[in-house]
């Protein structure tokens, strides 16, 4: 796999935003390892440093991780998809209904759910590319539409439960040492990575993100490419819905509420420009990990446990981390401007 989208040389690698983010992640992890790990009265190792906790982090980051992967190509084209969280909810409900009320087997219901996810993404794609409506408005609309549909199907009350153990295995057990869903997450991550960094399609997504008119003049099929990223986004949201349902063992209309914002945060934290063109899947994965470690780690800090403030703290610190990372990413630019000004003055 060779690609010219990556700059080579150790200096470039060191200066890359992803390297900075990796360093932040390592520091963050070591911090929680140090302050969040204790031995209880019976002398058992508990808290952040346990292997169980690490698997737990992985397990919990799969759904938001998938949505962040779905959003990376979208944001590369300078678009946005706010509907992924709602589509996750709708797909979870559809899956539950197809299986329990429709009497379908789990694999058939799952396959139909994936198709439904792609169709949901297709609705976004159609509105954006055929009617040329702005992605922000379109997906703000489908954000409400998909959630509303999920609530209408369940009358806001029905919860689908009692899924067979063979299905729950996907969300709650381990396979070959790793949480089972990780085996679904990894190939999706690899596929999105290849799409973005290894294919001509990925290259054209960047071109569209930088300049949609420039891409059109270069003869690139702009509408088809843009449609693809939204359909893909919907499809991946459906994958996330299956994993979500398997992890919690239930499908409710409020599944995945607010996930779109976590996912966007992870993508932006990962260094993908909201204006399109620039960004990487590696960055997105690091962004997801940084947020997941923060969230899980905070819950193991004694002081946070005493204050019972894990949720609040993680919200505040995620925001702070995002702002800090963005400031850090433009720091070289600020420094060079200052230097130029000093030389000029």
């Amino acid at each position: 796999m060779s690609t010219t989208d990556h700059q080579s040389g150790w200096k470039n690698i060191l200066l890359r935003y992803e390297t900075l983010l990796l360093a932040v992640l390592v520091v963050e992890w070591l911090f929680f390892y140090h302050y969040g790990t204790t031995t209880n009265r019976r002398g058992v190792f508990v808290g952040f440093g346990t292997l169980d906790r690490q698997f737990d982090i992985l397990r919990h980051s799969c759904e938001i991780g998938l949505l962040a992967l779905a959003l990376t190509p979208v944001i590369l084209t300078a678009g946005i998809d706010l509907s992924v969280g709602s589509l996750l909810g709708l797909c979870a409900i559809l899956f539950g209904k197809l299986w329990r009320d429709g009497g379908l087997t789990i694999p058939v219901a799952a396959a139909l759910t994936l198709v439904a996810g792609a169709l949901g993404g297709g609705l976004n794609a159609g509105l954006i590319t055929v009617l040329r409506l702005p992605p922000l408005i379109v997906t703000l609309g489908t954000y409400s539409l998909f959630r509303g549909l999920a609530e209408a199907i369940t009358h806001g009350a029905v919860t689908y439960t009692d899924f067979p153990a063979s299905f729950l295995f996907l969300g709650q057990e381990r396979w070959l040492g790793l949480p089972t869903q990780a085996w679904l997450f990894l190939p999706v991550a690899a596929a999105v990575w290849l799409l973005v960094h290894g294919t001509a399609t990925g290259r054209s997504l960047r071109a569209i993100g930088f300049s949609p008119e420039g891409a059109r003049y270069a003869g690139l099929p702009v509408e088809r490419r843009v449609a693809l990223v939204y359909v893909l986004s919907g499809f991946i949201a459906a994958v996330a819905a299956l994993i979500y349902t398997a992890r919690l063992g239930q499908a409710k209309a409020d599944a995945g509420t607010g996930y779109e914002l976590f996912a966007i945060t992870a993508v932006v934290l990962g260094g993908t420009s909201i204006f399109g063109g620039r960004g990487s899947v590696t960055g997105t994965l690091l962004g997801v990990a940084a947020i997941a470690v923060l969230k899980s780690g905070l819950a193991t800090l004694p002081v946070v446990i005493r204050l019972n403030a894990a949720e609040e703290m993680s919200g505040m610190l995620t925001g702070a981390l995002l702002l800090l990372a963005l400031t850090g990413s433009i720091l070289p630019k600020i420094l060079s401007t200052l230097r130029a000004r000093r030389q000029a003055g």
Binding site: S2, T4, A200, S204, F210, S211, E213, G214, A218, L220
Partner: peptide, 28 residues
């Protein structure tokens, strides 16, 4: 605005219209 994509490296600018010939199967 139309002739080159200013933010893209010039090598990528030059190959933008020949993706299918240069990258069989779509792989860069």
């Amino acid at each position: 605005r139309h002739g080159v994509i200013l933010e893209m490296p010039i090598a990528q600018n030059m190959t933008l219209a020949v993706h299918s010939r240069l990258f069989p199967g779509g792989w860069l």
